[in-house]
């Protein structure tokens, strides 16, 4: 009985949020600028959740997630501009995004395979190389604009869609993290060899983690492309990847709530600092360095908000399993 009620509550909450996301902008209560910032926050939440799966939960170190984002953005854009009839655009938008996500997931495999053999610094370099290769390839394909970029997408991204995808990402990642596979992924972070030696198929898990992570980064890319209506290879450079790192480590590794916090704080802060002009870009890196020195686990490091944990997770034991005693 209690269980049914809490489930209803959760679904009701999600639905309520979606309705709110639909009504508020339509009612004119939110001015376009606030809407825009809200959408950036949402896209960044998806990106941060996606990167946190690999860097926070699995303990690998990806510095190339902008590469996945780029692939998602370009595939989705090409699909809306060159493939789908313009009239159907709004209806096909979710499928276009999924197309981009799947393309990115495929690229995720490219990084997952090297991760069988290498770890730590070397895997970081692999992901970095991946990011650079994607960017360089995009710059060299004239068909999609080369270094000038690609445009012509309708502005299909709006607040309800962003909220919808944030919820999907959050639910999918929560379900993954609190499962057999999710525990296996955590075990890889803690001690990969020991995980193997108690029967965890670490290779399969790495493929899963990279697939899921890349998929959602691709979705975020698609949303981003249809918000800006213009993308170019330079938007997906290593700088973008670094932004994602800042959000993950600001919010806290291995935490869904932390990812939401980190993405929100970072995005809003950068908006607030807009009057500073170029100096704004000095603040981000400085924040990152100070964060690493004084609060290396971020705001929520390895802890989770209770509302995001499945009720049945601990089989009757109900205390929050925070790391901090």
């Amino acid at each position: 009985m209690l269980r049914r009620r809490s489930q209803l509550l959760a679904w009701g909450g999600c639905l309520g949020l979606l309705v709110l996301a639909w009504i508020l902008p339509a009612s004119g209560l939110l001015n376009p600028y606030v809407q825009q910032v809200l959408m950036y926050v949402g896209i960044n939440i998806i990106l941060t959740l996606s990167l946190n799966l690999v860097n926070g939960y699995m303990g690998e170190f990806s510095v190339g997630h902008a590469g996945f984002m780029a692939i998602g953005a370009y595939i989705a854009s090409i699909l809306t501009v060159a493939v789908c009839p313009r009239f159907w655009g709004p209806w096909l938008f979710p499928f276009v995004l999924i197309g981009g996500g799947l393309g990115a997931a495929l690229a995720g495999l490219v990084v997952a395979f090297p991760s069988f053999r290498t770890r730590g610094d070397y895997l970081a370099i692999v992901t970095l190389a991946f990011n650079m290769i994607v960017k360089s390839l995009l710059e060299n394909i004239e068909l999609i604009g080369g270094p000038r970029g690609y445009l012509g997408m309708a502005r299909l991204t709006n607040v309800p869609w962003v909220v919808f995808w944030v919820l999907i990402t959050l639910i999918a990642l929560r379900n993954f993290v609190y499962s057999n596979a999710g525990r296996g992924v955590l075990a890889i972070r803690e001690d990969e060899l020991a995980a193997n030696l108690i029967g965890v198929n670490t290779r399969r898990l790495k493929i899963y983690a990279f697939l899921i992570s890349a998929f959602f980064a691709g979705i975020a890319g698609g949303l981003y492309a249809h918000l800006l209506q213009f993308i170019n290879p330079r938007s997906f450079s290593i700088l973008k990847s670094t932004d994602m790192l800042v959000m993950v480590y600001l919010g806290g590794i291995g935490s869904l709530a932390g990812s939401i916090l980190g993405a929100t704080i970072f995005t809003v802060l950068l908006e607030l600092l807009r009057p500073l002009g170029v100096w704004r870009w000095v603040v981000g890196p400085l924040m990152l360095v100070l964060l690493m020195i004084f609060q290396p686990t971020g705001i929520m490091g390895l802890r989770e908000a209770k509302i995001l944990q499945p009720r049945e997770e601990f089989g009757g034991v109900t205390r929050n399993p925070g790391t901090m005693p």
């Binding site: 860097n55 170190f61 510095v63 730590g120 610094d121 970081a124 700088l239 670094t242 790192l245 800042v246 480590y249 002009g277 170029v278 100096w279 870009w281 000095v282 981000g284 890196p285 400085l286 990152l288 360095v289 690493m292 020195i293 290396p296």
Partner: peptide, 30 residues
């Protein structure tokens, strides 16, 4: 930037290095 992190997890130091690099670059730019 690096000495305070010598006992910290390696990842922290690498991220700090990325941050320092960006800082130098954007500071010069500004």
């Amino acid at each position: 930037a690096y000495r305070p992190l010598r006992q910290a997890p390696r990842v922290s130091a690498v991220i700090t290095a990325l941050g320092v690099g960006l800082f130098l670059e954007n500071f010069t730019l500004a």
